Lab assay of single mutants.
Amino acid sequence: VRLVQFQKNTDEPMGITLKMNELNHCIVARIMHGGMIHRQGTLHVGDEIREINGISVANQTVEQLQKMLREMRGSITFKIVP
């Protein structure tokens, strides 16, 4: 398990697509080339996201998580399992 932190201070999309796997874990499905996450190089396709800013992603839908990420500003921390 590791923590990945980055800054999001604009309306620029993060450039990641999330999916739920068969165990209902949140997985990074795709990283858009040239997007914020791609430029930082901190997340990778297949990484499992456990928490966003200390909030568990368990029992949340992809749509709920994407909305939460769109609305966040400032420092964002993901707890991930590579």
Rank of each mutant, 00 (worst) to 15 (best):
R50P: 01
V81S: 10
Q5S: 15
Q60N: 13
N59E: 13
K19W: 05
A29G: 08
G74N: 04
V57W: 01
I37V: 14
L3M: 06
Q66D: 12
V45D: 05
E63N: 10
E51D: 03
L18D: 00
L3P: 03
H33F: 07
M68L: 11
T77P: 02
V28I: 15
H33V: 13
L69W: 03
T77H: 05
V81N: 06
Q7K: 12
Q66K: 06
R30D: 12
G54Y: 09
H33I: 13
A29K: 09
L23W: 13
M20S: 05
Q66Y: 10
N59K: 08
F6D: 01
L65N: 03
Q60V: 06
V1C: 09
L43N: 00
A58N: 08
L65H: 03
E12L: 06
N9G: 11
E48K: 05
N21S: 10
Q7S: 10
A58E: 14
V28Y: 01
V45C: 06
T42I: 09
M72W: 10
V45G: 02
V4Q: 02
I55V: 11
L43D: 00
N59I: 03
N9M: 12
K67W: 06
M72N: 06
A29H: 12
I80P: 00
I80R: 01
H25S: 09
I27M: 09
G34K: 05
V81R: 11
Q66R: 07
L3A: 06
S56G: 12
Q5I: 08
L69T: 07
G54F: 10
L18R: 00
Q5A: 15
Q5N: 15
G15D: 04
N9Y: 07
V1N: 15
N53G: 05
F6S: 03
M14I: 15
I80T: 06
P13H: 09
V81M: 09
H33Y: 07
V62N: 14
H44Q: 13
N53Y: 02
E51T: 03
C26T: 06
D11L: 07
I49T: 02
V1R: 05
R30N: 14
V57F: 03
I31H: 01
S56D: 14
I37Y: 03
I76F: 05
I16W: 10
T42D: 13
T17A: 08
N9D: 14
V81E: 07
S75Y: 06
N59M: 07
N9S: 12
V62M: 09
I37S: 04
M20L: 12
M20C: 05
L65W: 09
R39V: 05
G35K: 06
E51S: 15
F6N: 01
P13D: 11
I16R: 00
F78M: 15
Q7A: 11
Q60L: 09
G41V: 04
R39W: 02
T61N: 14
A58P: 03
E48H: 07
G46D: 04
